[in-house]
């Protein structure tokens, strides 16, 4: 079995692998690929669930901020202001150690998802609001003139167009969120950064361990941007 390599390449490859195997840091990374992968999967899980919460909250908060009802507007603005105006790291600590225990007994991962979701929602809200406002005013008028309610016009006309506008900033938010989940390692959620911390603490291979962590993060963020490009292309109507 030569996997399509020529014998020369095969020999070179084997030599390089042998040389690398003599480096301790490489061994640490190679022997812990499974742990890194598990950490990465949890990172992805936290990100996806947070994003889901963030999108729902963001849409509600965006509509709330544009509402004519002063109370709804106030609540939405207060929510957005608080979560954009304070550090995510502090929010994670406040929620995990302070507020969530008052309500229920959360695992670090659950707390991480709640904190990141709440934080992301505030940013998504502003993205969605900008997207809705970027849709031409005439679209709402045309929809209303046909006899649609405000809600129907939003649902069938404004939001689908706003969605297309917000894909690039939303993908950006998705990438930021994935990277920001590294902060939840502080509450011992065993995601990718936490995996790195543990491994570094037992091996002191800073360059190899943290380098590997970076590679894993990069693979995930790159995959998200590619997904974004694909979605944009698919939704193109011009």
């Amino acid at each position: 079995m030569n996997l399509g390599f020529t014998s020369t390449e095969w020999i070179f490859g084997t030599i390089i692998l042998d040389r690398l195997n003599e480096i301790h840091g490489f061994q640490v990374v190679a022997n812990n690929l499974g742990n890194f992968a598990m950490g990465a999967v949890l990172t992805l899980e936290i990100t996806l669930f947070s994003l889901l919460i963030g999108m729902v909250l963001g849409l509600i908060a965006a509509l709330g901020k544009m509402s004519n009802n002063q109370l709804i507007k106030f609540v939405a603005v207060a929510y957005i202001d608080f979560f954009r105006g304070t550090p995510l790291f502090v929010q994670i600590l406040l929620l995990y150690f302070g507020i969530i225990p008052l309500i229920f007994d959360a695992t670090p991962v659950q707390a991480a998802i709640i904190a990141c979701g709440l934080n992301s929602g505030a940013y998504v809200a502003e993205i969605v609001r900008a997207g809705i406002q970027a849709v031409d005013k005439g679209q709402m008028e045309a929809a209303r003139s046909l006899g649609m309610t405000h809600g129907q016009s939003m649902r069938y006309i404004i939001l689908p167009q706003a969605f297309k506008i917000v894909i690039p900033p939303l993908i950006n938010e998705f990438v930021m969120l994935l990277k920001d989940t590294s902060l939840v390692s502080a509450i011992s959620a065993h995601e990718l950064t936490h995996t790195g911390k543990m491994l570094y603490a037992s091996t002191y291979q800073a360059v190899w361990v943290w380098g590997a962590v970076c590679v894993f993060y990069f693979i995930m963020t790159k995959a998200i941007s590619m997904l974004g490009d694909w979605t944009e292309r698919r939704l193109a109507t011009e």
């Binding site: 679209q139 929809a143 046909l146």
Partner: peptide
């Protein structure tokens, strides 16, 4: 409004 169709200067097609 269903009984009053409107056509706009800038079309406003979806």
């Amino acid at each position: 409004r269903q009984e009053m169709g409107m056509v706009f200067q800038l079309f406003n097609l979806f």
